[in-house]
Design a protein around this nucleic acid. Sequence first.
DNA 1: CATGAATGAGTATTCATTCAT
DNA 2: AATGAATGAATACTCATTCAT
Lengths: 226, 226, 226, 226
Amino acid sequence: MQSGDEVNLGLSTYRRSVSEAKRKAILKAARDNFLGNGYSRAAMADIARDADVSTATLYKHFSSKESLFAAIVETTYSRIGVVLSSDMDDLTAREIFLALADAYSTQQIEGRINNLFRVVIAEVPTAPQLAKSVYEDGTLRSYAYLQKVADALVARGDFKPHNTADGVRHLGGMLKEFIVWPALFSQEFPKPDDMKKNLEACVDTYLKMYGTGMNAKRPERDTIGN
Amino acid sequence: MQSGDEVNLGLSTYRRSVSEAKRKAILKAARDNFLGNGYSRAAMADIARDADVSTATLYKHFSSKESLFAAIVETTYSRIGVVLSSDMDDLTAREIFLALADAYSTQQIEGRINNLFRVVIAEVPTAPQLAKSVYEDGTLRSYAYLQKVADALVARGDFKPHNTADGVRHLGGMLKEFIVWPALFSQEFPKPDDMKKNLEACVDTYLKMYGTGMNAKRPERDTIGN
Amino acid sequence: MQSGDEVNLGLSTYRRSVSEAKRKAILKAARDNFLGNGYSRAAMADIARDADVSTATLYKHFSSKESLFAAIVETTYSRIGVVLSSDMDDLTAREIFLALADAYSTQQIEGRINNLFRVVIAEVPTAPQLAKSVYEDGTLRSYAYLQKVADALVARGDFKPHNTADGVRHLGGMLKEFIVWPALFSQEFPKPDDMKKNLEACVDTYLKMYGTGMNAKRPERDTIGN
Amino acid sequence: MQSGDEVNLGLSTYRRSVSEAKRKAILKAARDNFLGNGYSRAAMADIARDADVSTATLYKHFSSKESLFAAIVETTYSRIGVVLSSDMDDLTAREIFLALADAYSTQQIEGRINNLFRVVIAEVPTAPQLAKSVYEDGTLRSYAYLQKVADALVARGDFKPHNTADGVRHLGGMLKEFIVWPALFSQEFPKPDDMKKNLEACVDTYLKMYGTGMNAKRPERDTIGN
DNA sequence: CATGAATGAGTATTCATTCAT
DNA sequence: AATGAATGAATACTCATTCAT
């Protein structure tokens, strides 16, 4: 009160940073609880305890359990984006899609997006809008990106002209079969040892369908072809 | 004595039929509640009310919420089996897989298996064994069946020899992309108008990859006739 | 209907005996359940099942759980009476009281009266009248009997004249200390090995107090005295 | 900062005192309910209402009905200890045991230990360990204390040498006969008018048995004065 | 007369959210 | 601004008792 602006500024900055730290702690604790126990069994009191704040503080930051969960989903998705390899000009189509598939599997499994999916799916009856936005911002946006890549490869001559929108969904479906689907039905799903082989098989199927052939696979690996 | 027996028989028959009717009413009400609200939010009292029985009667039939849900899952799955076309000898590979894809989509959407999946997935943290068995009895068994079909088509010459286990998973992944995936993220998912087209595209991709070509797509029925 | 009186008589006799048998089965099952689990946890359905009758039949015989329990208590007490040795003229005072103490301990422990006491005591808040009658018909009547015995022994010269009413309560109190008290606080209380010794000590204390000395203990055992 | 601490200190002190007050109110309400209705019929909701708190608050303080009851038992027993007269050197053996008997009767009746016994006994089938500990910590510990007193009196010459362990159990049995036994069988058992006389009779019987005679009953204080 | 299915009132316990300090 | 104690509504499950057949 009596102190000057600077002090107030410093104080308010300090307060904001403390508040920001608490917010992050809350989000982390909430994420762990939601992804670990599911929405219903994640208790606000537990989240507050894990975040080392009082329940009242928790509610200062997030006005309800639902909004807290929405924030978790949002921050997760903002972190994600569609993961792309930097400059695809130097890469073959196969390399590009293998890189994308690998990044996708890492994100889903190690980034615990599969777990997030599970919780979001579970809450469809109570938070349909949230699920819808996850589907649209997640699945559909990824496909939009993949489609751009496919279009570029068509332009580059690596792919035959085709309905790229459908094509990338086929690829996506095949990948999910190995990356997402089993993970939805089990609490823990570490990346299995044969994941790489399976992803390659998916990508190769995709390339076989739409690739122009010669450079769909790495030239130097020709001997493997057959 | 004899009349007593008859009366008792009549009584016991009557009772059994009443009881059976109530059991069915309970199962229906439970199915609606579970699939509509999810496991946690489905209240036993509501289920009893919807089935027009008391909670005690409900518990006479199913000793716990968990066992009631398990019964729902079981009856759903027992109704399923893997849907197969009766005699595949008269059909082309394309016709066979289109029929299977169509049956699958009907089952998942109209049989509300998609909704069931959602609830089972939601309960993975609390009932991991149930989810595991659904995945194994459902998904994996379906694939085993599909693989047999694919193997038969290889033998028939419609398919090139290939790793049929992987192949059917690719097909399954693509189909789920259109049939299951969007349904998991929304409460209601009626079969969309363009479903047929999408399923055809999936099957054609599959055939393009593994089919022998000439009769994979537009076969002359006569030539196949064993 | 058409049959003669004799047949009806036979039938009705038959029915009555069947009914009586069921009644006994119910009482036995009820006794086991009540003494084993306590009043609250003894379920009417379980009792019916154990007695091999329907719940409706159970209620035909006993209109409520409470009245069933009262019947248990009543039949138990009617069976009991105060157990006395046949002709006490040939016995010393010590022998008489040792016999009574022994019969009492057998009755309480093997006749499961201790368990019955526990349940009756537990139900004092809900069935105070029952507990009162158990106390009066049980404890007090026993004392009345003991007092008569003591009076006879006073008349016989084995006991000094004294307040026999108080005296027998002292004896009773001491005996309960070993026979009843520990049994109330534990589910199972088999007669311990040193019971006889303890009962003798109680009786001897009693005799020391009121006996005339010479024939209070067996003459031939004099050497033990002191 | 300092003012913050003070405020916090004040706040936490305030909270602790409020919480402590509620805890006491809960314990009192619980005690009344348990002792009045027995364990099964005492409802947590009623206890909460009587204590003027919500059921949730009740559960914050005591995590289950069982633990609440255990707390009642424990606080009751911690209050008890074995009530001893301060300095027994100035008292005759008779005075000592009369004082102990009187304290015991007051404790059992006015301290409602008799009621507690009833509830504990009722719960033997469901909480055998609790009953066991009550018996051991209560009854047996009391006897251990009494035995020490008796041993001291033997040493002082007021008592003949004897098996003091058995002796005090005889005394205890007689006292319970008048103090505890009738109370177990009735909801309310106020100390009867003739209690003093009865206790004296018990103690006198005990002294007659084990006392050295002359000063057991009517001592000359001077001679005893160590 | 016997049955056993059905009842509904009752109970312990949990949890998102609020409020006095 | 932060606390944590308090709330009250909700929920799975039980059991003495009744009733249609």
